[in-house]
Design a binder for these strands. Structure first.
Lengths: 178, 178
DNA sequence: GGAAACTATTTTAACTTCCAAATATTGGAT
DNA sequence: ATCCAATATTTGGAAGTTAAAATAGTTTCC
């Protein structure tokens, strides 16, 4: 009886020992000075894919995608539980259209309410409902218990990743160097 | 005259100095033992978003998305320029349906051809055309020149990222520890 | 030789993202 | 007072993703 783990696709298994080292070698042959950059970018892409797939698996039983979870958590972390749509886009760093989309779906499920701002009628305020708060809390507990998909990774390794990637954010100008 | 860079959304600017440190602080207050994992995962997500947006900006003038570029490059790197659809999915680590999708679009543009395998008629072979090769080469040069979106990052920093993320791939079981 | 099991690809359907183009609303300059 | 430029959100459309089901072809094993 085979085990048949039913991996979601983020868990697909490569057919070479380490596809990234492999690609690095290939690149080195023709563009040696760019091979490290290529490998770093590919690593980020692949890590993101793996992590996202694990996180969504944790969230799925709670009926949330990662995008929905982030939106809900953002509102839950706000004192009043309310934020203008535009502000949410900035904080989550996603396109305004995406915010409209996610909040629309959360609204239909009664997890978030939507109302025009009294101060500026162009602005729409999203507000988390009690049900939304409960779900956010529940999902957060689940994610923590799952160690965000990398429970097996020692905390120091995790911190190294954050540090190494800070350089990317700085280089791209998201962060001031300081 | 303001500069108005017209940032694609990956380039949105946060409104706090470092949103990730911020989140780490928030998390530490309630779930100290998970804060590092949370921050690492968030960093990967954010870095991916930033890099993808820069890379797609480089690719756009050539009429390619990143997914399309990867498929084309994979074929171009093959000696014969031909690969079964399934194999492409494995190599690129994407769902078979995505391969069908991307190859379909490339085929319509004459960059790739498609034909059933003579050996096994379940199998469909994708083959890069001369036009496809030219475009792949052109796009690769552009990406190299742009340093894959992180030209400003010293090669050593790039290598650190690859090393740090290898731990994720190992922890998730994509790679054997060796 | 034929039924059953497995494999490869495509289709369908549900989501997500982003961009570009409306639509409103506000606020500043004349 | 009004016109014009900026701002906030939504809509519509192209792409990409995955899961699940449908189709077709191959193998395996009595």
């Amino acid at each position: 009886m085979r085990d048949e783990v039913k991996t979601p696709y983020g868990g697909a298994v490569p057919d070479t020992p380490d596809p990234i080292s492999e690609a690095h070698r290939q690149w080195s042959a023709r563009w040696p000075e760019h091979a490290d950059h290529m490998a770093a970018v590919t690593s980020v892409m692949r890590a993101q894919q793996l992590l996202l797939s694990r996180i969504e698996a944790v969230l799925k039983p709670h009926g949330l995608t990662f995008a929905a979870y982030e939106a809900l958590r953002l509102l839950a972390f706000t004192r009043t539980g309310t934020l203008p749509m535009g502000k949410m886009g900035t904080r989550l760093m996603v396109h305004p259209a995406s915010v409209t989309n996610v909040i629309g779906r959360l609204e239909r499920r009664g997890l978030v309410g939507r109302a025009p701002s009294p101060d500026d009628r162009r602005v729409v305020l999203a507000t988390i409902t009690p049900a939304g708060r409960d779900l956010a809390e529940e999902a957060t507990v689940a994610l923590n218990e799952a160690g965000f998909g990398i429970a097996a990774l020692p905390a120091e390794r995790a911190a190294e990743i954050t540090a190494a990637l800070r350089a990317v954010r700085v280089s791209v100008g998201e962060l001031s160097d300081e």
